[in-house]
Amino acid sequence: MSSAHQIEQIAERVERLLVRYEELQRTNALLAQQVEALTTERDSLKSRLAAARARVDALLERLPIAS
């Protein structure tokens, strides 16, 4: 195999690696956005759950004690 051919093959592989790297960067950015959105949603749901628990606890305290 000639040096020129080897260099050409290496250049092609480097190009493919660069394309794959860019694809992975885009995928990573999208996944980071999804994680951020899901984290925000989780925090909101946790807050709503805490508020609902507080309301249920307040209602339970208002119930008469069975004798």
Score class of each variant (00 low, 15 high):
residue 37 A to G: 02
residue 14 V to T: 06
residue 13 R to T: 04
residue 29 A to D: 10
residue 67 S to A: 15
residue 41 E to W: 01
residue 14 V to H: 01
residue 19 V to M: 07
residue 42 R to K: 14
residue 16 R to T: 05
residue 31 L to R: 03
residue 61 E to P: 01
residue 31 L to H: 03
residue 61 E to V: 07
residue 25 Q to A: 14
residue 62 R to D: 15
residue 3 S to T: 07
residue 6 Q to W: 00
residue 65 I to E: 15
residue 27 T to N: 11
residue 33 Q to M: 09
residue 48 R to W: 04
residue 57 D to H: 13
residue 32 A to I: 03
residue 38 L to P: 02
residue 9 Q to D: 03
residue 7 I to L: 08
residue 64 P to Y: 03
residue 28 N to W: 01
residue 17 L to W: 00
residue 53 R to C: 09
residue 51 A to S: 14
residue 45 L to N: 08
residue 10 I to A: 06
residue 30 L to P: 01
residue 31 L to G: 01
residue 53 R to H: 12
residue 6 Q to L: 06
residue 67 S to L: 14
residue 59 L to W: 10
residue 19 V to D: 11
residue 38 L to Q: 12
residue 11 A to E: 08
residue 53 R to K: 14
residue 46 K to A: 08
residue 46 K to Y: 05
residue 32 A to T: 11
residue 46 K to V: 10
residue 67 S to M: 11
residue 25 Q to E: 15
residue 56 V to W: 09
residue 36 E to L: 05
residue 23 E to C: 05
residue 42 R to E: 06
residue 2 S to I: 01
residue 14 V to Y: 02
residue 35 V to T: 06
residue 53 R to A: 07
residue 39 T to Y: 03
residue 13 R to D: 04
residue 10 I to N: 01
residue 6 Q to M: 05
residue 3 S to F: 08
residue 1 M to D: 00
residue 10 I to M: 06
residue 9 Q to R: 08
residue 15 E to F: 07
residue 37 A to W: 04
residue 66 A to Q: 15
residue 47 S to Y: 10
residue 53 R to M: 12
residue 56 V to M: 08
residue 23 E to D: 12
residue 26 R to E: 14
residue 23 E to Q: 13
residue 31 L to T: 01
residue 54 A to H: 10
